[in-house]
């Protein structure tokens, strides 16, 4: 019962079917559709002939070009490593001083070190390496575990309070919470510590109180922080006389630190970064600390 009609706008006949008012024209398929269909099929056939394509049980057709992703990637990685080796070899074998004295090498160190640093370290230490609350600045102040290149390299390698068997271990006791010191002693030593970095004490501390604080400091703190309060790098104890603080240098922060103790963490990078990458990072950090 199909009744074809001619569509006045296009001039084409309808198919004669109708569904709730919808009709269809019997327009021929435009040539372009066939042309492109054939073109894409030709492309497909060519690609299948040239590239790995058809499965044959346990193997597959390798393609006339003989291209193989995995082989190409392996080769590209080897090539890139060989290209880099031109300068990384010299870093691997050279001493820190020699590398630092070579401007061309240091250019590579700065380029590569920056990427290594922002990919691996910046999440805690910040992209500018200036740290933040709980995370030390790496560009100023004295590093907890020593500021020479070997110390920094070792810290990166084993981490601090990390899972590495040789990890650096450091802990500040919770003097208040664990009842090692009474509240009055804590207050006294807090005032004394504030004066170490040239800050005024919290209270109008009497000379007796300051003296008592100094005595407590001598009894409890000097074993790690040293008699002069300048810290000990072999124990990871910070210098209390400078104005660089990891957990804050105001009275409340220091009180919190004395009361609850501290134990920071830094992961070990030995399994994550190659020796040369760690060396580049060390050089990069040494360089950051040097530049104003």
């Amino acid at each position: 019962m199909a009744i074809e009609e001619r569509d006045s706008h296009t001039g084409y006949l309808t198919t004669g079917h109708e569904w709730n008012g919808i009709k269809e024209l019997n327009t021929p398929v435009p040539k372009a559709v066939y042309v492109f269909l054939i073109a894409t099929v030709v492309f497909t056939v060519a690609y299948i002939v040239l590239m790995p394509a058809i499965p044959l049980g346990v193997t597959f057709t390798k393609g006339l070009l003989g291209l193989d992703d995995r082989r190409e990637v392996t080769r590209a990685v080897e090539d890139a490593a060989a290209e880099r080796a031109v300068w990384t070899k010299r870093i691997e074998t050279g001493s820190y001083q020699d590398v630092a004295a070579d401007p061309a090498l240091m250019r590579s160190v700065r380029q590569t070190g920056r990427t290594l640093f922002t990919d691996n370290c910046a999440v805690c230490h910040g992209t500018d390496a200036k740290g933040g609350h709980g995370y030390p600045s790496l560009v100023s102040g004295s590093p907890l575990w020593g500021s020479d290149a070997d110390s920094i390299a070792e810290t990166i390698r084993v981490g601090i309070n990390a899972t590495h068997p040789k990890t650096r271990v450091g802990q500040m006791l919770a003097f208040g919470r664990d009842g090692i010191l009474q509240r009055a002693d804590v207050d006294n030593v807090l005032d004394y510590v504030l004066t170490l970095s040239g800050q005024p004490p919290v209270r109008k501390a009497t000379p007796e109180q300051l003296a008592a604080g100094k005595a407590t400091f001598a009894a409890q703190c000097v074993s790690c922080h040293g008699e002069d309060g300048k810290g000990k790098a072999d124990l990871g104890a910070p210098d209390l006389t400078d104005r660089h603080w990891i957990y804050g240098g105001d009275a409340q922060s220091i009180l919190t630190t004395i009361w609850n103790g501290r134990q920071g963490h830094m992961p070990s990078w030995e399994d994550r970064l190659s020796p040369v990458d760690r060396k580049i990072l060390t050089l990069y950090l040494m360089d950051l600390r040097k530049s104003p």
Binding site: D7, H9, T10, T14, T15, N20, G21, I22, K23, E24, L25, N26, T27, P28, V29, P30, V33
Partner: peptide
């Protein structure tokens, strides 16, 4: 689309 436009489908064969 065809109902709202009030037009027949352009080409049944293309469909």
């Amino acid at each position: 689309l065809p109902v709202r436009a009030g037009r027949p489908i352009y080409s049944y064969r293309m469909s």
